[in-house]
Simulated scan of single mutants.
Amino acid sequence: ESPPPSQREIDLLAWTRNLVALATARSLYGASNPLEGIEGSFWEFDHGLGGLLVGICPQVTARKAYRGREKLVQSFAAWLRNGKHKEADVAPIIANRVAMAAKHGWELQEVARSEVSFLFAGIVNTATTSFWGVLQTFNDPKLLGGLRAELAVDPNSKTIEARLRDAKLLLEAVVNECLRLGSDTYSTRVVVPKEGVEVEVKGKEYWFQGGAMVQISGGTIHASKENWGEDAREFKPERFLKGVSFKNFRAFGGGQTLCPGRNFALAVVRLLIAMVVTSLISRL
C-alpha cells in the first residue's frame, strides 16, 4: 500500500524544476504552450548544454542535448505555425517578440529557436534558485518560522500575492542569499581604447591592452571574505537585513548588462517559496 502524499519521498530538485518550468511556460505562452508534454526534452537540452557549446559535431558528441533542443524547436515551430501565439492568454511580451521577428523577415525556424532561448533564460536559473530557497528554508526551523510569521502578517489576506506585498523582507533576504551562494555569473567587457588603459585597484596598477576581453567573476566576488565577512561561505540571509552593500552583489550582472528579466525571475522564486512555506503550515 502506498504511503499518503504527506509521507511520500520526492526528488525536491526535480519537483521544483517541473513546477517552475511549467508555470513559467504557461504564464508566458499560455495554456497551449509548446513545453507541455515535452518538458523532459528541455532538461536534456539544459544538462548537455556544455557539449552543445563546444560545437564539435553535436549530433554525436552531445546527442541527447541536441535531440532535446531540436524537439523543442519543432514544438515551438508548430505552435507558431498554428497561430497559438495570437491566443488571449499569451503574454504581451511573447506576442510582441513574434511580431517583431516577422516584421524583420525572420523565418519560422529562426523565430522558434529564438523562443526556445527566451524560455530557457526564464526557467533554468530560476528553478535552481527556487530549489535552494525551499531546501535552505526547511533546513532551518528558525528561518522557517520567521518566514511563516512574515507571510501571515495579515490573517485576513487570502492570497499569497497580497501577503507578499505586505511583508517580504526576510523572504527577499533568503532569495538574495541563495543567489549569492549559488550564482556563479561572469560579466565580460572589452577594453575600448585602442591604446589600452591603466586601472588602479586598491593601490595596485593594472594594464589592460586595447581590444582585450576582461571577465568579472561573480562567484569569486560572492565568496570573498573581504566583501562578506568570515562567514562568507555560510548561508545567513540575515546579512541582507543589516544594510549590506549591494555593490558586491552580482547575481544578475551589473552595469549596462544587468539582467533585464531579473524582476520576473525574483517574483517567481519568491512566490514559489512563499507558496510552499504557507501551504504546509497546517501539516508541519
Results as ranks from 00 to 15, higher is better:
P3M: 14
P4K: 09
R8A: 15
D11R: 05
D11G: 05
L12N: 05
V20L: 02
A21Y: 03
A21W: 08
L22H: 11
T24P: 08
L28T: 06
L28C: 04
G30A: 07
A31G: 14
S32G: 13
P34D: 00
L35P: 12
E39F: 00
G40Q: 13
S41F: 09
E44Y: 12
F45Y: 15
F45Q: 08
G50M: 05
G51C: 07
V54K: 12
G55P: 05
I56K: 09
K64S: 15
G68D: 08
G68L: 04
R69F: 06
R69P: 02
E70Q: 13
K71H: 05
L72W: 02
Q74A: 13
Q74C: 05
S75K: 00
A78W: 07
W79V: 00
G83P: 00
K84N: 14
A88N: 01
A88S: 10
A88G: 07
A91D: 14
I93Y: 09
I93T: 07
I94S: 02
A99T: 09
A99F: 03
H104A: 05
V111L: 02
A112T: 07
S117M: 08
L119T: 03
F120W: 15
G122H: 01
G122R: 07
V124K: 05
V124C: 03
V124F: 06
N125M: 05
T126R: 03
A127G: 09
A127W: 00
A127C: 07
T129P: 06
T129L: 06
S130P: 06
S130N: 01
F131H: 14
L135W: 10
Q136R: 14
L143G: 01
G146T: 10
L147S: 12
A149S: 11
E150P: 04
A152Y: 08
D154W: 05
P155T: 12
P155N: 08
S157L: 07
I160A: 11
E161K: 07
E161N: 04
A162R: 12
R163L: 04
R163Y: 03
L164T: 09
R165I: 09
D166E: 14
A167S: 15
A167D: 03
L171I: 12
E172F: 07
A173P: 00
E177R: 01
E177L: 05
E177M: 06
R180W: 12
L181A: 02
L181D: 00
D184Q: 10
D184W: 14
D184F: 15
T185Q: 12
Y186M: 15
Y186A: 15
S187G: 15
R189G: 00
V190I: 13
K194E: 14
G196C: 04
V201C: 08
E205M: 13
W207G: 00
F208I: 06
Q209N: 03
G210S: 04
G210E: 12
G210N: 07
V214A: 01
I216D: 04
I216C: 01
G218P: 02
G219H: 10
T220K: 12
K225W: 06
E226N: 11
G229I: 06
F235K: 09
E238Q: 13
R239E: 05
R239K: 08
F249H: 12
F249P: 01
F249D: 03
R250W: 13
F252W: 14
G253M: 04
G253A: 10
G253I: 03
G254T: 08
T257M: 08
L258R: 10
P260D: 04
G261V: 13
N263I: 01
V269W: 02
R270S: 13
L271C: 12
V277D: 10
R283Q: 13
L284E: 04
